[in-house]
Nucleic acid binder design. Structure first.
Lengths: 236, 236
DNA sequence: GTGCGCAAAATTGTATACAATTTGATTTTG
DNA sequence: CAAAATCAAATTGTATACAATTTTGCGCAC
């Protein structure tokens, strides 16, 4: 069965043709933490798996690098990005700057259709958790924020938020405190409530504290990134 | 003589090797309004001008499309982007959201070196205007905002602002009211003053009104579109 | 046994050839 | 004469071949 959410894609169609499938599949896998930060994405490997030439693989990897999910190192290859602690802090500072205001706008532009989409989204999150599909649940919880930004109807800012959410997924993979449970369930539910009532003040406040909660569940001391490739770190 | 400004590049090194030159040259030409929105960027044409294969031209065009300076249309080719009126409004709304706050941060992190760079920047703008190089002046005036965002030391947000400034350049090419003079001279000078004094409140306020001034000088009602000959402008 | 150096293998970078699609002009047809 | 159909030229999309670079592994000296 396919996703219950209208648009399951994170990466906008910056690329078309056969490469689009590759971009979708890779970004999906990264968002669901099936591909972990540091994983090498070899060109031959991918071209064989997807039955396309290296030309389109390279185009897809370049596209992913521009959305910052993948890092390209010249003559070395493509790797799933490994945001640093500093980048992690910056990403959530940027989200704190953009998203609360965006949630307010969304509340002001709310309508029946949008509310239905959000509720369906939360249900999908629920179902994924119930089914034990933690990767999918994680991806959906990120996508929830994107959905709100789309309701706010600010395409440009929504694009920024998409990038930040994508990066957040990598950050969570690297810095999430294992002991703290990921229970965005209540926060998202409360947000949908506020949005449904058109309560911009509350939506803004809820989003602010929700983002703070997420950061609190991260371990952003100088924790070394669990690198797959040690040589990247040990050789200057 | 080369630029007096430390980093004349707008597009970050998302691409390396021979293609980097191409990206630099094209983004420079676009920022200086030598290549106007809607201009077609043919692959053969560029590969001949820069003496590289179409492979690297395509990579460069893809990079430019991800920074939204260029729009790729499948089976049609690459064109200098033509932001719509709606996009234009969104871009300046996003700038209004990000830049005043960023100017405040910059004021708080100001130091001797940064102040010197900003003053050198303003001087370069001055000189370009005096020399009648309006394209260069325009590019520098955009880069001034990027310089401030770098001083604020928020790489992620700085990246967003870079994209917005790039897009603004296209917007100005399309929607600038000819009658209104572009005199960012005073605004930029006042900003540097406030920043130099570490006056965050004033810097934030000045940036806000400065951005408003720019929008006011735009005619965001309709949109014509010009075009141009490539080989007349580009020389590697 | 450790470290260095060199050569082979693997991988990425670039160029070129060919396929698919669009474009524009010319011809055909009502 | 206008509109539609068509065919050739031009342009982009994709695959493959070759070059450059990095990685790997073996052998040798110390």
């Amino acid at each position: 069965m396919t996703n219950a959410v209208p648009n399951p894609e994170f990466v906008k169609p910056t690329i078309s043709g056969p490469g689009a499938k590759l971009v979708s599949a890779l970004s999906l896998a990264i968002h669901e933490h099936k591909l972990l930060p540091g994983t090498k994405l070899g060109e031959d490997e991918l071209s064989e798996i997807f039955n396309v030439s290296r030309t389109v693989v390279r185009a897809a990897l370049q596209a992913l690098s521009h959305s910052e999910l993948v890092e390209l190192k010249r003559n070395r290859g493509a790797f799933v990005s490994q945001p640093t602690v500093r980048e992690a802090r910056e990403v959530f500072e940027a989200r704190a700057l953009l998203e609360p205001r965006t949630a307010r706008s969304a509340a002001e532009r709310m309508n029946e259709d949008a509310l239905a989409r959000l509720k369906a989204h939360i249900k999908a999150e629920h179902d994924a958790i119930a089914a034990g599909e933690s990767g999918k649940a994680l991806r959906l919880s990120g996508h929830f924020h994107i959905e709100i930004s789309h309701i706010a109807d600010q395409t440009t800012i929504a694009g920024f938020i998409e990038r930040l959410v994508a990066r957040s997924s990598l950050i969570i993979a690297l810095y999430w405190k294992r002991q703290s449970a990921l229970c965005e369930k209540h926060a998202h539910h409360a947000l949908v409530d506020a949005l449904g009532r058109g309560d911009g003040d509350e939506a803004e406040e809820l989003m602010k504290s929700h983002l703070l909660d997420i950061v609190t569940a991260l371990d952003l001391r100088d924790a070394p990134a669990p690198a797959v490739n040690l040589s990247d770190i040990l050789t200057p």
